[in-house]
Amino acid sequence: MGITIRNTYGTPHNVSQTNPAHVTSCDRYRLPLVGFITPENPGYEDMVEILKGNGHDTRPEGYGLIFLESEEFSATYFGSIEQVQQYQQENQATGGKATFDASRGVMYARWPHGKGWDDYLPRVFWNQAQLGAVADGAGLVTAFAHTEVPGAEIIVFEFEGAWTAGGETHKLVTYHCTACHMDTFHDCGHVQENTGPDSRRWAARQARQHLISAARHGIGDKNSACRPDNGEMLRVVNAVARDMWNTTGNALPDTDDAYCATKGPCSIIRELRAGVRPPVYRA
């Protein structure tokens, strides 16, 4: 069964021919970071291990680095210090319009991590206040059209939230399906600490998997990830509340979409789309 995933927001990406959840590259990147490492850097030997393993550790003086990222992918360029210094100077002179010749070095998929790298690389968000976002780490990343429900989307977004009600605020990233309105906080492993491109890549991959599951199994099937609750739990809570408080009205909206629009992920997404910084989720 061939499944085509169509973007409603963000940049379309290239995917595996056999698995549309597996992003392999992007035709357009932004370059948020450049850097340099030399043998004097703490952890240098660990940092260049990635190059040694592939026979690419050919510059004893060190390397110039250019870090590339898109909404769902990232890459790291290792070149000469001189080349990257020249790129940096030209980029400043042209207001960010400089290019570089990737054939003069080597390119690796993703940003490195591990010894040396974890201390070297800063935390970079897709949505940044200096680029017009309402706050660092708060905004939409990408979105896909639902294959089974016209007008519905699966939206990947960065936000500020707490792991537990009333807990400490964290920079997080997750996805939300406007067909089933599942709150990913209730599904273990579907909310990520937003530490960089890999976090957003993983959240987008889960969004793609959700969409593929809906396309294969339909909406509401026991094997489908897209299973609307149809307000069942809300009706239970409202019934208990009416009994406890001896009232006739509902304490909560009695449909999933209404609840989500006022108290759930849809309320966050609505604010982000309007250019407003939402309250911390679950604060």
Results as ranks from 00 to 15, higher is better:
S25K: 10
F36T: 14
V240R: 12
D243V: 04
D57C: 12
C177Y: 07
A207G: 15
A102R: 15
Q88A: 14
A75D: 00
R277D: 12
F185N: 04
V156S: 08
E45A: 13
A165Y: 02
Y281L: 04
G166D: 00
P122D: 09
S213N: 03
F36W: 08
V15G: 01
D243Y: 11
E45C: 06
I155G: 02
C266R: 14
G137F: 03
C266N: 15
H217M: 01
R282W: 02
R201V: 05
S199D: 02
S16E: 07
T94F: 10
A102M: 13
V15C: 03
A145M: 01
P265W: 08
D257Y: 05
T178V: 11
D257I: 13
R227D: 00
R6C: 00
E82G: 05
P150G: 04
M107D: 07
D187Y: 15
Y108L: 12
A214D: 06
T184L: 08
R28A: 13
R28W: 11
T76C: 04
G2C: 09
H146Q: 03
A179Q: 14
I212M: 13
R6A: 05
D257L: 07
M47W: 00
R242H: 02
E148T: 07
G64D: 11
N223Y: 11
P112S: 05
L68G: 14
P20N: 11
T24Q: 04
G96R: 01
T76P: 02
A203D: 08
G43V: 04
Q130M: 06
G64A: 14
A102C: 06
R277Y: 12
G220S: 05
Y77H: 12
G62W: 13
A75P: 00
G220I: 00
I269A: 11
V124T: 11
R110Y: 06
A204H: 03
D229Y: 02
A165K: 04
T76K: 03
A241F: 13
P265I: 04
R110Q: 09
G62T: 14
Q83R: 08
G161S: 05
F67K: 00
L211K: 02
E69C: 09
G2N: 10
C226H: 06
R205A: 07
R30G: 05
D57K: 10
Y120L: 15
D243T: 13
I268C: 12
Y175T: 09
P265S: 14
F144D: 04
E158L: 05
C266W: 10
Y281I: 00
L68T: 07
T262E: 13
H210P: 01
D183L: 10
H217P: 01
D46K: 08
C26V: 14
A283N: 03
K171I: 01
L51H: 09
L140R: 12
H176T: 13
E90D: 14
P228V: 04
E271R: 15
R201L: 08
L33N: 02
I3S: 00
G64Y: 11
T142P: 07
C180Q: 03
H210A: 10
H170V: 03
S213D: 02
T4K: 07
D57P: 08
I212S: 05
V34D: 06
S199R: 09
A129M: 08
L68S: 13
